[in-house]
Write a protein that binds this DNA or RNA. Structure first.
Lengths: 203, 203
DNA sequence: TGACAGAGTCACCAGGTGGTGACAATGTCC
DNA sequence: GGACATTGTCACCACCTGGTGACTCTGTCA
């Protein structure tokens, strides 16, 4: 064997990512990681301490969350109107989440397990989300009739759910999740909803 | 022992429900069901054939999906306006899903496993959803600027995601998911969104 | 009373999991 | 060269899983 501990470490970490993308968190175990990386599992314990710590280190490397710039898709300065801002970020959320199977897998995992790691990952996202809201030109304060934050949360959550659902479903309320046309409808609906809600004029 | 096969069958089926509510599908196995029901696992094979068939039979008993009447919350005849109709059904979706932990667990399961059973369960819901859309007074046809079905799907998906997420998260984009006030904000936002989108006037 | 089918019990199997101790190979430094 | 720590290999452990064969018990019916 190669006898290069640093290389072995990264091989293990890469195996985590690959396994995550292929099998999700269901098949995530010491034996599976050892098999996938072609490394003896005892090295996982030696180098990382255990599965928890390995996953923690994998998470610490990051790279599966889109940055704010990626979410916006264009320079933030170009989004002077709060409605454009919201529409662009929601579209960006959909776009960026769809192209990140590992991120999707983490979010699926968060949906039915809660531990220090999932809490930390969620906290990071939550923090980023709040930060983005703070960047909204003019802010997103609620008044008597409108609650822009709740509305944005709802639409973002809807897009998230549909992306996660698309792995195991072909269709949702008649909308084809396998086809790009279906996603186009959803993108336009999201934009139309937020425009109508914030300005009172659909589309 | 009691020597009553019918009683034993129902004890097993009830154990499935209890286990589902407590542990979700993660801990769903022959041994666990046998333990939870206080019945030898060999009887599961004798009476049902295996885990798949047992789950199938459990699903066939139904009772975890809200009916259309429950979703509407009030007589459909009272919902003459398509906007009221949509708002009432979205609010009903949230209300009914929140009170059904087993249904939530099934939907979580559907999110990362796909088999004949999940497909069938999803097909039932899909069918019901389409049926509800058909009941909308005046229909929900898309025109050049609006796609009411996509908008409703998005909001419904958002409510679904937040309900599922509430089990493992306390907060989403600053909205408190443990508190009734948070759900009130979301309900009002959903209604405001659909009203604004369909009529052009928020709230 | 005795035969018999149905209901329930028990012991076991192969295979997988997380986890560890003992050992062999390899490079490094004196 | 020899000492030594590091890296990697292998065999093993207890435990749990799904699944099955063989047994005993019990109620029913002739």
């Amino acid at each position: 064997m190669e006898r290069d501990s640093e290389k072995t470490r990264t091989r293990i970490l890469e195996a985590v990512g690959g396994l995550l993308a292929r099998k999700g968190f269901a098949g995530m175990g010491v034996n599976a990681i050892a098999r996938a990386s072609g490394v003896d599992k005892v090295l996982i314990y030696r180098y990382f301490g255990g599965l928890r710590e390995l996953l923690r280190e994998y998470a610490a490397r990051g790279g599966f969350w889109p940055t704010i710039a990626e979410l916006a898709g264009k320079p933030l300065a170009a989004l002077g109107d709060p409605v454009d801002f919201a529409a662009a970020l929601l579209a960006g959320h959909l776009r960026e989440l769809r192209r990140r199977p590992i991120t999707q897998e983490i979010m699926r995992w968060e949906l039915h397990e809660r531990n220090e790691l999932t809490d930390e990952l969620a906290r990071f996202r939550e923090q980023q989300g709040i930060e983005i809201l703070g960047l909204a030109p003019g802010g997103f304060e609620a008044d008597g009739t409108r609650d822009p934050v709740a509305a944005a949360a709802l639409i973002q959550a809807g897009l998230t759910y549909l992306v996660l659902r698309a792995k195991t479903a072909d269709v949702y309320l008649g909308i084809d999740l396998r086809d790009e046309a279906g996603w186009g409808r959803l993108t336009r609906a999201a934009e139309g909803l937020v425009r109508a809600y914030l300005k009172g004029v659909p589309s």
